[in-house]
Each structure stands twice: as C-alpha cells, then as structure tokens.
C-alpha cells in the first residue's frame, strides 16, 4: 500500500538483519536464521528456554540520513506478538555509517507461535520529535514452530482415532474433520479409517497415487472453504472501514480473496462480504465464489486432470497386456 507522509522520509531501504541468536546465553547455530526468508526458526528451543536474545542490525543509506531535513535520528527494534499482545521496543545503538546495532529479547512467558521483528527509524523533523522516518523494508519472523527458517508453513494436521475420542466419536466414520474454532485451525485425520494413512502417506502403486492425489485435493478444498467461512465471521466493520481479523484468519483471507473476487482488492472484497453478512443477505453467489477459491487453493483442477490421465494410461496398459 502506498502511503504519503507530511514530511520527507528515508527513500532508501531500511535493512533489518538478524545476526546472531543466543538462547539463555548460549549462541545458537547460525543456520536457524535465514536472511533470504527473514525467518528465525526456533522450534529447536521449544519448551526449554527462558530468554532468547537476537542480535540485530539496521542499515540505512548513511548519505541520505546525514543529508535529510531531520536531526537526532534514533532507531528501535520492535517485537510484536499479537497472540500475547506484546509490543516491545528495543533501542539500538548507533554504530556509525548509517548502522544501528543491538539486541532484542524474547521471554518465554511472553511468546507463543511466532513473533514479528520490525525496525523503526525515528528522528526530529521540523522541530517535532519522535517522528517516524523509516521502517524495515522487510520484517522478520521468529517462529517457535518452525524447524527450518522458511516462511513456508502449513496448517496443523493431527492423526487421531475418532472412535476413541470423546468429542470426535460422533464423527467416527468421517475420514477427516477440521476444527476451525481452535486458536489455530487443526485438521484431524481419522486413523481408525483403515488404509487412509497408508494411502495419504505411503502411496506406492499408481492406483494408490491417483486416489491419494484426488483425496488430498478434496481434503484441502473442504478445509479451505471451511477456514474461509470461519475467517469471514472473525472479520468486522468499524467506522465504515473493514477490520482485518489478524492471525490465521487474516492469512486465509489474504490467500483466498483474490480468487473470490478477481476484480476487487482484498479489502474491498472483504468489506463487501462483511456487509452482506451483517445485512443477512443470502450467500448463494458467495458460496460459489468460495468454492472456486478453495478449488484453486487445493489445486484440484490439476489433481483431477492428472488422475483422469493416469486412469486412461492404466486402462490402455491393461489392454495391451
């Protein structure tokens, strides 16, 4: 989104880099940090740590910083975790030449899931202090769930025997079920359905692979549709502005809205949907659009076409025997 400030701000990049990871005073391996993905993978420290310190540096164009109409520039690193409602700022020390350095601290009781690290460059502009003149071009994510430092993450999946579970037993014959009410969505896969796990995880024959691919696409499209609806209910309008719900709800909407409404911006599309919902309009058209978006997310067209082709190949192979 393009924004405009009422005073000059830094035009060059503000590069935020995580340099070093120290868990309870012990330096951790550098490979937990990915500069390309801007992710720090913290799964390894899960459950047995008190305090994590991440050494960060922020670099701006020193020439621009010196030449601009501002004075007393400072820089803070900002750690936020929406789930624990943490928003801490850490003052970084100037290291000269447009660089600031310092540590951010994550404390165990204050972190859950993942937190975001940002950087703000602040200065006096036109006699007013504390004015924002730059933010990190790319924010970082410190992810307590991530085993490898990549942005790539999927929804949680759990194999469960539905017949043994007091709350799932009424769905005991369902091969899968999504819990979209939990703090994070969980896809339950029913391990009491014979062969399901084998096909999904260890398909070997061409026939099994055909079934696996179509089934996976089917599971995924149902999951997306159901997550979309949950996310929509979590959204709201306030003062005529649409309120993004944050968290995984927002992630789902951001992924799917462009396919729900190809010709509207995501915000506009969401506003439209929330309005329809609050006005209690029938959702016939919407369900069709959601289904389309879910189909796209689950790559169903490819899976179906591929399966049909494989079937044809298998059939002709049989004939030629």
């Amino acid at each position: 989104m393009k924004t405009l400030f009422p005073y000059p701000v830094l035009s060059g990049e503000v590069v935020l880099v995580a340099d070093r990871l120290v868990v309870d005073n012990i330096p951790r391996q550098w490979k937990a940090i990915s500069e390309r993905e801007h992710v720090i993978a913290l799964h390894e420290v899960k459950g047995r740590w008190k305090e994590i310190r991440i050494k960060v540096s922020v670099t701006v164009d020193a020439g621009e910083l010196a030449a601009g109409p501002w004075s007393a520039p400072t820089c803070v690193a900002v750690v936020r975790n929406p789930r624990t409602r943490i928003r801490h700022t850490f003052t970084l020390a100037p290291a000269g030449n447009g660089v600031w350095e310092g540590d951010v601290e994550l404390r165990r009781g204050e972190q859950l899931g993942a937190c975001e690290i940002d950087a703000w460059v602040v200065a006096d502009v036109g006699g007013e202090s504390g004015r924002l003149i730059g933010t990190a071009s790319e924010r970082w994510r410190a992810d307590f769930e991530a085993r490898t430092p990549t942005q790539q993450r999927s929804i949680k999946m759990v194999w469960k025997n539905f017949t043994d579970d007091i709350d799932l037993t009424e769905f005991r014959d369902d091969p899968w079920l999504l819990d979209a009410q939990a703090d994070d969505p969980v896809l339950y896969l029913n391990s009491s359905v014979e062969g399901l796990r084998g096909v999904l995880e260890n398909a070997t024959t061409p026939e099994q692979k055909v079934v696996r691919d179509v089934m996976a696409a089917q599971i995924a499209s149902e999951t997306w549709a159901s997550m979309f609806n949950a996310a929509l209910y979590a959204s709201d309008m306030e003062d005529g502005e649409v309120q993004w719900p944050g968290g995984w709800h927002e992630d789902v909407l951001k992924r799917m809205l462009p396919d729900v409404f190809a010709d509207r911006s995501p915000s506009e599309g969401l506003a439209e949907l929330v309005e329809r919902r609050t006005e209690g309009q029938s959702g016939g058209d919407l369900q069709r659009r959601v289904m389309h978006a879910a189909t796209f997310q689950s790559r169903k067209p490819k899976a179906v076409a591929g399966a049909l082709k494989s079937l044809a190949r298998m059939a002709s192979a049989k004939e030629s025997v």
């Binding site: 009422p6 803070v76 700022t89 602040v122 504390g130 004015r131």
Partner: peptide
C-alpha cells in the same frame, strides 16, 4: 502513524 510514542515515552 507518524509519531512514535514508544520513543517519546520509553518503557
């Protein structure tokens, strides 16, 4: 959006 109160009033 332009005034960083965290810097004006640190914690």
């Amino acid at each position: 959006a332009t005034m960083i109160y965290e810097v004006l009033a640190s914690d």
